[in-house]
């Protein structure tokens, strides 16, 4: 893999209709970087979950806004940044509940966060004041 940083960006309207497009974008880059088929599928799932959260929570399902997915490839790892300009929603601050608890409460929310945390090696949320919210998910390549 090249030692210099490479960046790829995708900007899409904030509609769930575009989640398939986002997954294709992530899968393409993941495969190019050297993740195997199962890992690529998991990366696409994690980014899908983050974008679905943004559409639902940051934008309140308003499909006229924009979601940006930025992939930053560095030596030995890849970062996926999901960027929005909606309400602050820090998924990393939310307590992940067990599936049993959610079923008992007849709730289905919170699963996406559990998936993101399980799949990714690191998850960080950053608010760029007056500009955007960025969720950075990092996955390291196995040697």
């Amino acid at each position: 893999m090249a030692s210099f940083e490479r960046r790829f960006s995708l900007h899409v309207p904030s509609s769930t209709e575009n989640l398939a497009l986002i997954r294709d974008f992530v899968s393409g880059i993941g495969a190019q970087v050297g993740f195997d088929e199962n890992e690529v599928a998991r990366l696409a799932l994690a980014v899908d979950e983050a974008c679905a959260n943004v559409i639902e929570h940051a934008y309140g399902s308003d499909s006229t806004r924009e979601v940006t997915v930025r992939a930053v490839v560095e030596e030995g790892e890849i970062h996926f940044d999901v960027i929005d300009t909606g309400r602050h929603f820090d998924p990393s601050a939310v307590q992940a509940q067990s599936v049993e608890e959610l079923v008992r409460q007849r709730r289905s929310g919170g699963l996406g966060l559990r998936l993101i945390r399980t799949i990714m090696d690191d998850v960080q949320y950053r608010i760029v004041a007056g500009e955007s919210n960025e969720l950075r998910m990092t996955k390291r390549l196995k040697k």
């Binding site: 799932l45 899908d48 679905a52 959610l102 079923v103 289905s108 929310g109």
Partner: peptide
């Protein structure tokens, strides 16, 4: 071919009832 938490959530929200 693919399922995300939104799909899994459908199973979870109905199963008790």
């Amino acid at each position: 071919t693919y399922i995300s938490s939104a799909g899994l959530g459908v199973f979870m929200s109905f199963i008790e009832e």
